[in-house]
Amino acid sequence: MFEQASKYAATVDDVMIYVTVISVAMLLLITVAMIYFVIRYNAKRNPIPTPYHGNVAIEITWIVIPTILVMTMFFYGYKDFAELRNTKEQDMEISVTAKMWDWDFEYENGTKTDTLYIPVNKTIKFNITSIDVLHSFYIPGFRIKEDAVPGRDGFVFITSEKTGTFDIACAEYCGQRHWDMYKKLVVLPQDEFAAWYGEEDSNIEDKASSEEVKEEESDDVADSEDSESDND
């Protein structure tokens, strides 16, 4: 049901569980207390209330403890986020251009596709922009999302760790067919990908092995650095 496509997805799920556990504990605490008090101090049983105006120590307790709890939540969330946004060595860059109501995926060698194919066990960088209105590049299986903003370049990394097919959706409202921007992301074994990529690319004579593909990509790191500094 909650498909995990990468280790990153698993860490996000862990944070999710962490926050949920604390939340459920808090909810139970107040609910049980409420029900108990309502029964124990019901008007029939306890017709004379005991005036009580508060207690500083208790107030401090329930300020400090939740503060500590939420700070740990912030920290875990931040840790994964930092990991996600960290500029990594990418094996491959793909530019993603959103438009009403479609996605264009373009590989470094100029190949354009409708379904996004990527090799397994690689770090891929998506450079995201839009030509008309806001869209948002969303791959639930990888737990990532980044808005496509006209006039700006966004980026997001994924590391593919298992083969399979995942949904790509548009998460920012963009008009009539916002719901109709579903695409597929297919993670292929490296050799299959290489075969596909080579076929698509008429410029590469040699049906390239996966190593060669990788080498080509690392040449382009210089390029990609400009687009990163455009961010922020």
């Binding site: 999710m16 949920t20 939340s23 875990y76 969330g77 986020f81 737990r143 920012e172």
Partner: peptide
């Protein structure tokens, strides 16, 4: 309200919100 408010924490947590935003 507490259920709503506590799930606000899932949304305030940055890594989970990236997944949950606009869902």
């Amino acid at each position: 309200f507490s259920i709503g408010g506590l799930t606000g924490l899932h949304l305030g947590t940055i890594s989970t919100d990236i997944h949950l935003h606009d869902t």
